[in-house]
Simulated assay, not measured.
Amino acid sequence: MISLKSNQLKSTQCKNELDEFESLLKNNSEIDETQLLNFFKSRPQLILLMGRVVGIDAPRNYNNELPLIGKFRADFVVANGAMQEFVFIEFEDAKDNSIFTKKINKKTSVHSWAARFEKGYSQVVDWYLHLAANNQTQNMKSEFGHFEIKYKGALIIGRQSSLSRGDCNERFEQRRSKSLIDSKHITCYTFDELYEAMADQYAILESF
């Protein structure tokens, strides 16, 4: 069965970790995937808050680098207290060429989708198809404790500044808003967008 740690969002600790994330983004124009993974692994409040951003209203359980029914692996998993709602999150690097290539394709006069984006996006597609194939099976029950779960997948990649070239921002918006896999959207954020969404969620939590 999937192994998750239990925790909850705590105001002071959450704010401290969120401030550290802001500093990381401000002080580094490009950040590699390993650095980002290690940064989040040591900050459980950020993992829980990220889960809330992606789709878990009351995140309580989490872990990193977990297999999904023995075939694929998610960088981060966040679940609610009842272990019936999950988000599976894939990290790629936060670089200027993570989402689109810097050079314009001479044949099409556009910036091509980057290999890192296609790799991460395809990973989430694989999760969706694998989970759908195992829905209502003993494999699902053994892994998650239920024959059926609610779930979303997310790809976090790149920097917001890289989308200012040509029509890159428009195409990024279209891909994440109009593409469906097994009737599900794949949530995509740049790391800058993720920080802003996390800061918004923290402000909401603090208002109660």
Rank of each mutant, 00 (worst) to 15 (best):
V87D: 07
E118K: 12
I104K: 08
R73E: 12
T101D: 13
T108A: 00
S23H: 10
L66N: 09
Q123D: 07
D32Q: 15
V87G: 03
D19H: 11
Q84V: 11
Y121L: 04
I89Y: 03
N97A: 09
T108P: 01
A58S: 14
K10V: 11
H111R: 04
A79T: 06
G70C: 13
E30M: 07
L49M: 00
S122E: 10
L66M: 10
Y128S: 13
Q45M: 02
Q8T: 11
G51W: 00
I31T: 13
K103F: 01
D126S: 15
V77W: 07
E22N: 13
A79Y: 06
T101R: 06
D93P: 15
E30C: 05
R60V: 05
G81L: 08
K103M: 05
K102D: 13
D96R: 10
R116A: 15
N97P: 05
A79R: 05
K26D: 13
R60T: 07
N16Y: 11
V54I: 14
H111L: 04
N63R: 03
D75K: 02
K106C: 00
L25Y: 02
E30I: 05
E22F: 05
W113E: 12
L68G: 11
F117R: 05
N80G: 11
F86V: 01
K41A: 12
T34Y: 14
L24D: 12
I104N: 03
L36S: 13
R60L: 11
N38Y: 14
Q45C: 04
L36F: 04
V54K: 04
V53C: 06
K26G: 11
F100W: 01
E20W: 02
N27T: 14
T34E: 15
G55I: 08
R116N: 14
Y121G: 09
D32A: 07
L9Y: 09
D126G: 04
M83A: 05
L46G: 04
D126V: 09
I69D: 09
S109G: 02
K103H: 03
F76Y: 15
I31M: 10
K103S: 10
D93I: 01
F100G: 00
G55P: 07
T34V: 10
E22C: 14
E22W: 01
N63T: 09
D32K: 12
T12D: 15
L24C: 13
A115I: 03
Y62V: 04
Q8R: 15
F91N: 07
F40I: 02
